[in-house]
Lab assay of single mutants.
Amino acid sequence: AKPPKTVTVKVEVTNADGETQTRTVTLTNLPKDLKPGDTVTLPETGQTARIVEITP
């Protein structure tokens, strides 16, 4: 079996106070056609994050 493909992405997350924070997260099994501006759900927090940058 192939190991899951991990991708490092820079995302913007809005916290409970309405502040936008930029975080770098490593995600696995992202859709192939994901692009900056799309939103993903962070598995560890369940927060919705907007992708700023994808590092191949």
Score class of each variant (00 low, 15 high):
1 A>E: 12
1 A>W: 13
1 A>R: 06
1 A>K: 08
2 K>P: 12
2 K>T: 13
2 K>D: 10
2 K>R: 11
3 P>R: 04
3 P>W: 10
3 P>H: 10
3 P>T: 06
4 P>L: 11
4 P>W: 05
4 P>Y: 05
4 P>S: 13
4 P>T: 12
4 P>D: 11
4 P>I: 13
5 K>C: 11
5 K>W: 14
5 K>G: 09
5 K>N: 14
5 K>S: 12
6 T>G: 12
6 T>I: 10
6 T>C: 09
6 T>E: 08
6 T>R: 13
6 T>A: 12
6 T>M: 12
7 V>H: 09
7 V>P: 02
7 V>L: 14
7 V>K: 04
7 V>W: 15
7 V>E: 03
8 T>W: 13
8 T>S: 08
8 T>Q: 09
9 V>D: 00
9 V>K: 00
9 V>I: 11
9 V>H: 00
9 V>L: 14
9 V>R: 00
10 K>V: 15
10 K>A: 03
10 K>C: 06
11 V>N: 00
11 V>F: 07
11 V>Y: 11
11 V>C: 03
11 V>K: 00
11 V>R: 00
12 E>D: 04
12 E>K: 06
12 E>R: 08
13 V>E: 02
13 V>Q: 02
13 V>M: 07
13 V>S: 03
13 V>L: 10
14 T>L: 11
14 T>A: 05
14 T>C: 07
14 T>H: 06
14 T>K: 10
15 N>T: 12
15 N>R: 05
16 A>L: 08
16 A>G: 09
17 D>Y: 11
17 D>C: 09
17 D>S: 11
17 D>G: 06
18 G>D: 02
18 G>V: 01
19 E>Y: 14
19 E>S: 15
19 E>V: 14
19 E>N: 10
19 E>A: 11
20 T>E: 03
20 T>R: 10
20 T>W: 07
20 T>H: 05
20 T>I: 13
21 Q>N: 07
21 Q>H: 13
21 Q>D: 08
21 Q>K: 08
21 Q>P: 01
21 Q>G: 05
21 Q>A: 09
21 Q>S: 12
22 T>R: 08
22 T>N: 04
22 T>H: 08
22 T>G: 03
22 T>S: 05
23 R>V: 14
23 R>Y: 15
23 R>P: 01
23 R>F: 15
24 T>L: 13
24 T>Q: 05
24 T>H: 06
24 T>V: 14
24 T>S: 06
24 T>F: 14
25 V>N: 01
25 V>E: 03
25 V>I: 14
26 T>S: 07
26 T>Y: 11
26 T>F: 10
26 T>C: 05
26 T>L: 10
27 L>F: 11
27 L>K: 01
27 L>M: 09
27 L>R: 01
27 L>C: 07
28 T>I: 11
28 T>N: 07
28 T>L: 09
28 T>S: 11
29 N>Q: 08
29 N>P: 03
29 N>K: 08
29 N>R: 11
29 N>G: 13
29 N>V: 06
29 N>C: 09
29 N>M: 08
30 L>R: 03
30 L>W: 15
30 L>D: 06
30 L>H: 11
30 L>K: 03
31 P>G: 13
31 P>T: 14
31 P>F: 14
31 P>C: 10
31 P>W: 15
32 K>F: 14
32 K>H: 14
32 K>A: 14
32 K>C: 09
32 K>Y: 14
32 K>P: 14
33 D>L: 09
33 D>K: 06
33 D>M: 08
33 D>F: 10
33 D>G: 13
33 D>T: 09
34 L>G: 02
34 L>R: 02
35 K>P: 00
35 K>F: 05
36 P>H: 04
36 P>G: 02
36 P>R: 05
36 P>W: 04
36 P>Y: 05
36 P>D: 02
37 G>I: 00
37 G>F: 02
37 G>E: 01
37 G>S: 01
38 D>P: 00
38 D>I: 03
38 D>G: 03
38 D>A: 04
38 D>L: 03
39 T>W: 15
39 T>M: 14
39 T>R: 06
39 T>K: 07
39 T>V: 12
39 T>I: 15
39 T>Q: 09
39 T>S: 08
40 V>Y: 11
40 V>Q: 00
40 V>E: 00
40 V>P: 00
40 V>S: 00
41 T>G: 03
41 T>P: 03
41 T>Q: 08
41 T>N: 07
42 L>C: 07
42 L>M: 05
42 L>D: 05
42 L>N: 02
42 L>T: 01
43 P>M: 07
43 P>S: 06
43 P>E: 07
43 P>H: 07
43 P>W: 10
44 E>P: 05
44 E>Y: 08
44 E>F: 09
44 E>C: 09
44 E>Q: 08
45 T>I: 06
45 T>Y: 04
45 T>E: 03
45 T>M: 03
46 G>N: 07
46 G>L: 05
46 G>T: 03
46 G>R: 04
47 Q>F: 08
47 Q>I: 07
47 Q>N: 04
47 Q>P: 01
48 T>H: 07
48 T>D: 06
48 T>E: 10
49 A>F: 05
49 A>P: 00
49 A>K: 00
49 A>T: 01
49 A>C: 06
49 A>S: 02
49 A>Q: 00
49 A>R: 00
50 R>H: 04
50 R>I: 15
50 R>S: 04
50 R>G: 01
50 R>W: 07
50 R>K: 12
51 I>M: 01
51 I>T: 00
51 I>F: 04
51 I>P: 00
51 I>W: 00
52 V>W: 02
52 V>C: 03
52 V>T: 04
52 V>Y: 02
52 V>K: 04
53 E>T: 07
53 E>W: 12
53 E>C: 09
54 I>Q: 02
54 I>L: 06
54 I>R: 01
54 I>H: 02
54 I>M: 06
54 I>A: 02
55 T>F: 15
55 T>Y: 15
55 T>G: 11
55 T>W: 15
55 T>R: 10
56 P>A: 14
56 P>G: 12
56 P>Q: 11
